[in-house]
Design a protein around this nucleic acid. Structure first.
Length: 492
RNA sequence: AGCGGUAUCGUCUAGUGGUUAGGACGGGAGAUUCUCAUUCUCCAAACAGGGGUUCAAUUCCCCUUACCGCCGCCA
């Protein structure tokens, strides 16, 4: 069996899309599972929409996801270059072969003429197919067009190729995920393979590149199914071996439309900026279409690779639901090593002065605030009360807690007692327990007692473990905040 | 319009010619807790519709419907 070689071929007209990331993942998994090679090719034939920033983003995102490629623009490889714009001299040669073999012909139609043809078709409610008017141009006619300054495009002659290699007009292939797919090639129009400006079209460039790069299996989105038929014919016309194809269902937004900006993030880098872990992202996206044989959903890419079978991938579209991604992300955050988490959280804590905390205090703060985090950026709003002398009191904490008589009583008592406490966690834990106990005997629920302290110290009604908070803040700051919170009531 | 594809709880999915149709997320209820959260327990929730084939169809076939994709000198 010849070597398994797969590829991901993104077009750098935007940041790496989450859908492209999934396609890349499935290719990567397939390569891993079959001891194959995973290659990265940049399809930048459309100079207009290409930018270096996007190329960098694609590299960075793929790397961050752990989808490392064996061959690509940066690492090179036997079949380079891996950037289409650096391969422009290759395509005309193959176009010429097709021309020579009679599987392609020059087309001198102008955009306006084509436009007119299309208009007629739409008027008659007929699907538009190119009329082949340039198929049998004589040398004289071509010469005349050239004199007019017209530059020809090159079209692929579908029916000619189909007739040369198949019995009927029906072309079929066996898709690794969809099963047998077929189409009547008579319904396909002769498509352009080389534009009049001398650059290849997508359908031509992919085939040439995949052929030259010896790609054995092409796994991509099902939006490419109709291209596949055209591409197969090119392979055949060139006398090349046709690779295996596998078409994945698409990822849709919850409203079943294409996942776009208005649904939130679409680029991997946007998810990362928001605080999604790449481990969670990749795991989540793997579950869209694929399911583990042992039912355990949380898995590393390597574990998934071992269990991966392309033929078992679901062939239907799947909807991108944040609920599960969020759950999975929070799960991964919980699993993170504390030192690792401390580092990953730092970008989201820039508005605070971390130097106020010792490493031990920072560690403790992270330990007690990590639990409810869904995405890393949640930390930003979870910790303001750990910093600064004073604290901002939320309206709700003021009106529902601090303004009550009980709370004021608790605070007064707390301030008096805590004066003599040692602000060390174990001790605080014990003291607070006793403190709550005293109030409980007076008929005040522990919850209410603690609420008063929490509201005064953190300005909130909910948050991290109180013992830890007090220990981190220290006696001085705690009492300062408590006294500040009790002032108004004391005056009565 | 044409061509192609898809159809199991709200979502991601498992599964089978005969099953109490399973799991996960989300939802609901309860327990734990100083709050939120976590954790644990329990509950509700699906085979799109109609025809066949068959002793039997969620499973196989056909049709309908719905949804998705493609119809560029974009990729």
């Amino acid at each position: 069996m010849s070597e398994v070689r797969v590829r991901i071929a993104p077009s750098p007209s935007g940041n790496l899309h989450i859908g492209t990331a999934r396609t890349a993942l499935f290719n990567y998994l397939f390569a891993k599972k079959n001891n194959g090679k995973f290659v990265l090719r940049i399809e930048d034939t459309d100079a207009e929409r290409t930018s270096q920033a996007y190329i960098d983003n694609i590299f960075d995102s793929l790397k961050a996801l752990g989808l490392n490629w064996d061959e690509g623009p940066d690492v090179g490889g036997e079949y380079g270059p891996y950037t289409q714009s650096e391969r422009f001299d290759i395509y005309p040669k193959y176009a010429q072969i097709l021309l020579d073999k009679g599987f392609a012909y020059e087309c001198f139609c102008t955009p306006e003429e084509l436009e007119a043809e299309k208009a007629i078709a739409t008027q008659n409610k007929k699907p538009y197919v190119y009329t082949k008017r340039c198929e049998h141009l004589t040398e004289e006619e071509k010469e005349k067009f050239r004199k007019e300054g017209r530059k020809p495009a090159i079209r692929f002659n579908i029916s000619k190729a189909q007739r040369a290699f198949h019995d009927s007009s029906i072309l079929k292939f066996n898709d690794m995920v969809k099963g047998e797919l077929h189409v009547d090639t008579d319904l396909l129009g002769d498509f352009v393979i080389m534009k009049s400006n001398g650059t290849p079209t997508y359908n031509f460039a992919v085939v040439i590149d995949d052929m030259l790069m010896k790609i054995s299996h092409i796994i991509r989105g099902e939006d490419h199914i109709s291209n596949t038929f055209k591409q197969i014919l090119i392979y055949e016309a060139l006398g090349a071996e046709v690779p295996e194809f596998g078409h994945l269902g698409m990822i849709l937004a919850p409203d079943r439309s294409k996942l776009s900006k208005r649904h939130g993030a679409t680029a991997v880098s946007e998810f990362v900026e928001k605080g999604y872990l790449t481990e969670a992202l990749i795991n989540f996206v793997a579950l869209l279409g694929w399911s583990p044989s042992d039912g355990v959903e949380i898995k590393t890419v390597d574990e998934i690779a071992k269990d991966f079978r392309i033929h078992d991938v679901s062939s239907s579209n799947s909807i991108f639901e944040y609920d599960k991604l969020n759950w999975m992300n929070s799960h991964y955050i919980k699993m993170l090593d504390i030192e690792d988490l401390k580092e990953r959280l730092k970008p989201y804590l820039t508005k605070y002065d971390l130097s106020e905390l010792s490493d031990a205090q920072y560690t403790r703060m992270v330990e007690v605030t990590r639990e409810p985090l869904t995405i890393l950026s949640d930390i930003t709003d979870a910790v303001p009360y750990f910093f600064g002398e004073d604290v901002e009191i939320e309206p709700k904490a003021q009106t529902e807690v601090l303004d009550t008589e009980v709370a004021q009583d608790v605070l007064e008592e707390f301030a008096r007692q805590a004066q003599g406490w040692e602000f060390e966690e174990e001790n605080l834990h014990h003291k607070l327990e006793v403190f709550r106990g005293e109030y409980k005997e007076k008929g005040i629920k522990p919850k209410v007692t603690m609420w008063a302290i929490r509201a005064a110290v953190t300005g909130r009604t909910c948050g991290a473990d109180m013992t830890a908070i007090l220990a981190i803040l220290g006696k001085e700051r705690t009492l300062h905040r408590v006294r500040k919170a009790m002032k108004p009531a004391v005056k009565n």
